[in-house]
Simulated scan of single mutants.
Amino acid sequence: MRVLFWSLTALVFVPLALSIARGMAYDGSWRDAPRHSAGLAPDPAGTPEAVVQIYTARAFSWRGYVATHPWIIVKRSGAARFTRYEVVGWGGGQALKVDYALPDGMWFGAEPSIMAEYRGAGVDPLIDRIEAAVATYPFKDQYRSWPGPNSNTFLAHVAREVPELRLDIPANAIGKDYRAWDAPVAMAPSGTGVQVSLFGLTGVTLGIEEGVEVNVLGLNFGLDILRPALRVPGLGRIGFPEDVSRRPEMAID
């Protein structure tokens, strides 16, 4: 029992300590934090095919020690620009924002990474479904950093409504497990399993994409079996990387 206790303690606190150390790399103000392009999105003018990219970046300030901020960008076939969707907790107006920043912009000093990407034939219908899911997000005027609803709650909603994405949202995306009091049981965000969650404070997720993940006070840890890795607070994942680039035909199976 002692070995189990210290193993679980290390599983939670070591990744958190490493995440805090990484998050302290930028200590400036939000006013002068870099928000330029990270160079991850293709040039829309030179890309005739349809594109969907889903991004995540370390949240700003102390929130970045334990949490991430995601967003979605879409471009239909032949379109000359991307449209960006996300939920933001400041800036006035409703929390759901459209084109709040550059499609692949740095998130207040944090470099984003691509969680999933679809391109080519069959992606235009996928964009239709994503935009329909954005329109039905139930917390457009609400934002709470912990335990939600927040930007990760928004992404989880879109993922559930569009299970073709098979989106595995990382363990450090605090808010992804937030559920309203009258709907504690739902499909896992990836659409490949089931989730039971009480206000995002405690619960469990079982899915082909997610593996097994336990939520305790918004901190998640577990085991990804499909692509072997530990799911941990702060860092999100330790192990084999996710498959970011998806075949377009997967989106319309």
Rank of each mutant, 00 (worst) to 15 (best):
R246L: 07
T47S: 11
S113T: 12
V194I: 14
A45E: 10
V87E: 14
G234H: 06
A251H: 02
I238F: 02
F13A: 08
P103G: 00
R58G: 10
S190N: 12
F221Q: 01
F240S: 02
G28Q: 09
A79G: 05
W6L: 15
Q142M: 04
R227V: 05
I252G: 09
L198G: 00
S7N: 07
A229D: 08
F221H: 03
Y85Q: 03
M250R: 14
L126F: 06
R227T: 11
P149F: 09
E249I: 15
I20A: 15
P147N: 00
V185R: 10
L235V: 14
D27G: 07
P103R: 01
Y85H: 10
L102Q: 10
G78T: 10
A50M: 12
K97R: 13
T83G: 00
A135Y: 09
D104Q: 12
Y65M: 15
V244G: 07
A171D: 11
E86T: 08
E210L: 03
D128T: 02
F139A: 05
G105V: 06
V51W: 05
T153F: 08
W107N: 14
P163R: 12
Y143L: 02
I127L: 05
I169A: 11
H69F: 14
L219N: 00
S145R: 08
I252V: 15
V74G: 01
S113D: 11
I72K: 05
E164S: 06
R81F: 10
P103T: 01
F108Y: 15
T68E: 08
G46Y: 01
I73G: 08
F5V: 14
S151Y: 03
T153W: 06
G105Y: 06
Y65P: 06
V216E: 03
D177G: 01
D177L: 04
P125C: 09
L235W: 10
K97W: 05
V87Q: 13
P170Q: 01
G23D: 06
V216M: 07
L8I: 12
L198E: 00
A57H: 13
